[in-house]
Write a protein that binds this DNA or RNA. Structure first.
Lengths: 122, 122
DNA sequence: AAATGCCTACTACAGACGTAGTTTGCTGGA
DNA sequence: TCCAGCAAACTACGTCTGTAGTAGGCATTT
């Protein structure tokens, strides 16, 4: 029931699917994962259960004998938390992080221009 | 001996100190951590040992009965790895990440302009 | 030399994580 | 109505993390 608990890498991956699929079942989540890296059904089930305990997901209803789940936490808030943690490691400011992205080529000047334009429009 | 192993949150914090202090001892690292959150000496010691096993740090010499350590991995490469992981969660592209930073006010248009200027100069 | 103090090396341990097997129960079709 | 099949719930377990205690060694001070 902890609100806003820390989510692990794998839990975030499952959340990602929850966010894009909307209300869905464990089976569907599992089958949406590419075969190469698809874990056992029960593994996904366990993760969903843990997400439920953390309050990131909740049951909506039962379809046949399968439970349906839905994300409670929004993508945005989960990302906010994640980013904050990374920023803390970068001394609390986002500038060095972006500088790093530019330096390593993960981000181009064009990307920046584009983002700037969008941001200016907000 | 694993090269480029994943570092945990706490390990990264210790690395941060290693990077800024340069060659140093466990004692010094421990005492550099603010009292409020300062763990026991042996805790720091354990982390340094694990960092050693992961090949992120190595012993340089002995001063009195204390070992001196030094970072092997660079800050930049550790951050690169960290960022890559976050980017993977963001669909592999950095744009959404930066967009998120802008949206949440972690980054301003001025920051962008500044970064752009610097980047243009490289 | 004996005691004191600091450091290393070893050991411990609970809780989180990733991963999955087993048991039990519901459900739709034969 | 009875069973095959799927899902839920429970259980398991090795590894990783954060956290630290303890035993033993070396050096400095009496």
């Amino acid at each position: 029931m902890k609100k806003d608990a820390r989510l692990t890498r794998f839990e975030l991956e499952i959340m990602e699917l929850l966010w894009s699929l909307g209300e869905t079942s464990v089976r569907e989540i599992q089958e949406t994962i590419p075969e190469k890296s698809r874990p056992a059904y029960t593994t996904v089930q366990t993760i969903v259960q843990r997400l439920e305990q953390k309050g990131a997901v909740h049951r909506t209803r039962k379809v046949g004998n399968a439970l349906m789940f839905e994300a409670v936490v929004t993508r945005k808030s989960a990302y906010r938390r994640l980013i904050q943690e990374v920023l803390d490691l970068f001394g609390g400011s986002a500038q060095p992080l972006v500088a790093h992205l530019l330096e390593s080529g993960k981000l181009t000047l064009e990307d920046l221009k584009e983002l700037e334009k969008k941001e200016g429009r907000r």
